[in-house]
Simulated scan of single mutants.
Amino acid sequence: MPHSLVLNLLPQSPIYPQFLTGRHFHALFLTLVSSVDPALGEYLHNSSADKAFTLSPLQIQRRPKPHQHSLQFSHQQPIPAGTPCWWRVSLLDDSLFSKLTPLWLNLNPEHPWHLGSANLYITSIQGTAQSTQPWANVCTYPELYEQASESDRTINLTFSTPTAFRQGQYDTTLPTRECVFNSLLSRWNKYSGIELSQIAIETIFPSFVNIHTDILADSRSKFIGILGEVNYRILGEVEPMQIKQINALADFALYAGVGRKTTMGMGMVRRL
């Protein structure tokens, strides 16, 4: 069962920009895991395989602007103490969620967690769909599949943090149907227990594209990815079952993300 959890945070001291990077969010998540299961935290730290979680960059709680779907992925100024923030963690594997259940159930809002030199309190967790928070949701894999439309041929995806895909030894930023839907398919088949084998990717065509590239740089590396929206259409004679499978993958994007560095805040995608 994939979970998309939004953790509401309150910093007790300023969070400086050098600690607002993907590797610091990754380290914070492993600290949370290790607090309830040290062996699991060590395993996730050492594993180089595709991991069963994704993370977002830290977001300052603001009133969302209409039609603005991108998230803040870099900070030039410190986040002041007392600024309400949120952070999305998605879990793709049932066993991972169940092992972390003690963390969610025994959350102490007065226990500080550390992001660099800053202390953070986790004040609450949202785990179900919210009208004011589109990144929180939960759904079993069978429900995701059963609820997927057999007739909807339009898929509008928003790329909310920089997204890039690995091709051979190099990255590409172009969200081709193969890059996007093969990324979703591999994660679906790995975690869902419902294998999809005959996806009609050749029937998917971009019909509207509004994207641009952006650069995310820290002291170690530079990451170039795309942001924006792509509308894909399913064209031609396609079996309803094949349309259903493509729609299931598109709905799964909220939880899985696409492309590279999804455990460090990149590749956050959802269907509009």
Rank of each mutant, 00 (worst) to 15 (best):
V138M: 11
P38Q: 11
T101L: 11
E229L: 01
Q68W: 08
L10H: 14
P17T: 08
H45E: 13
R177H: 00
N231T: 15
S186F: 00
L30R: 08
A253M: 03
F181A: 03
S56F: 05
R233M: 03
L115W: 02
H24V: 02
F53I: 08
L92E: 07
S207G: 04
I201W: 04
P38A: 11
V36A: 06
S34K: 08
P142W: 12
I201Y: 02
N231K: 14
S47E: 09
L235Y: 00
Q77R: 15
L227Y: 04
P134A: 04
S192L: 06
G82W: 08
W135N: 06
T263Q: 12
K244G: 05
I211T: 15
G236K: 10
L5V: 12
W113R: 00
V33N: 04
T172Q: 10
L103C: 04
I155R: 08
A148G: 05
L115E: 02
V6W: 00
K261Q: 11
V138R: 15
T154H: 14
I226P: 01
S70M: 09
L91C: 07
L7P: 13
Q72H: 10
F208N: 14
T123N: 02
H69G: 03
F223T: 14
K244S: 07
N8Q: 13
P162Y: 05
S34C: 06
L184E: 03
L115K: 03
N108H: 06
G257L: 05
N8G: 09
Q245N: 14
P80L: 02
W86S: 15
V269A: 02
P112W: 03
W188E: 05
Y16C: 07
F73W: 15
S160D: 07
G225Q: 07
